[in-house]
């Protein structure tokens, strides 16, 4: 993967009370790159995705997205705290799929997928519905357009959530343990959908997962987190086959999930 850095973390620090979660973290991701974040529970992987999604503010440091800063605005040489309008503009390029799906129960399936394209992107209703149906077909739910989310199984709900995320044409897709709440076979189906998406788009992806086979298949790069920072950064082949760091070896031994 070559090209410009698309996402950059520079000196990012985050603590919850006395619990320092990320300490002076710097890394970057290139456009179109698919990066998997691995590491023990509590090592800050979710926090990184949430900061990119503007759900959690960093205490210090800057996060860049394609030349713009997410939480700051450049005024001449100065970096000022970003306005809500600036944040919205940068955030437009990013979206996220959550562990617990978070479909809107007050909207039927198709409307879950079309609401943002219509009211945030300003697409026409027809265009949004057309594309929404296409995406729902793609995730295998073309027959559920008018179902309530509560009528769907977990795996189906997560596939709708994936369609909903793709419907806003993101440049960056964040996936936070999207199959952790699902039974193994169902998880495998969802991961297959994601594999197809990875193969057919050039969307930049940051993916937190314990599904190591999936990570190996789709990612260009794997980052191993431990105690507030990245302790190993490399290709999946390198990281999974010959991990250098002792903690990485121990972590990989502990992850038995082979989906």
């Amino acid at each position: 993967m070559t090209g410009e850095d698309f996402i950059t973390f520079e000196g990012v620090h985050k603590a919850f009370g006395k619990n320092v979660v990320l300490d002076d973290l710097s890394f970057s991701v290139k456009s179109g790159e698919r990066v998997t974040l691995i590491g023990p529970s509590g090592s800050g992987k979710t926090t990184i995705l949430r900061m990119l999604m503007t759900l959690t503010r960093p205490d210090r440091g800057v996060i860049g997205v394609d030349g713009d800063y997410l939480y700051h605005e450049k005024r001449g040489d100065e970096l000022l705290p970003a306005s809500e309008a600036h944040i919205r503009k940068v955030r437009q390029r990013i979206t996220m799929v959550f562990q617990h799906f978070n479909l809107f129960p007050n909207m039927k399936v198709l409307r879950n997928v079309t609401e943002a394209p219509i009211h945030v992107l300003g697409k026409s209703k027809d265009e949004a519905r057309e594309r929404g149906k296409e995406l729902l077909e793609m995730v295998g739910l073309g027959d559920k357009l008018n179902a309530h989310p509560s009528q769907l199984s977990g795996g189906q709900q997560q596939r709708v959530a994936i369609a909903r995320a793709l419907a806003v044409d993101p440049d960056v897709l964040l996936l936070d343990e999207v199959t952790s709440a699902l039974d193994p076979e169902i998880a495998a189906e969802v991961l297959d959908v994601l594999r197809d998406i990875a193969k057919t788009t050039d969307t930049t992806m940051l993916c937190v997962t314990h599904a190591m086979k999936f990570a190996r298949d789709v990612s260009h790069r794997v980052l191993m987190f431990n105690e507030g920072g990245i302790i190993e950064d490399g290709s999946p082949e390198k990281l999974f086959n010959e991990p250098e760091h002792e903690r990485t070896q121990a972590f990989l031994r502990s992850v038995i999930d082979e989906t």
Binding site: M53, T54, L55, R88, R91, Q92, I94, T95, M96, F98, H100, N102, L103, F104, E115, A116, H119, V120, A161, R164, A165, V168, L174
Partner: peptide, 12 residues
Amino acid sequence: GQLEAAVALNFT
């Protein structure tokens, strides 16, 4: 999680 999903879709 509902609000978070709404933020992720960039609703105002």
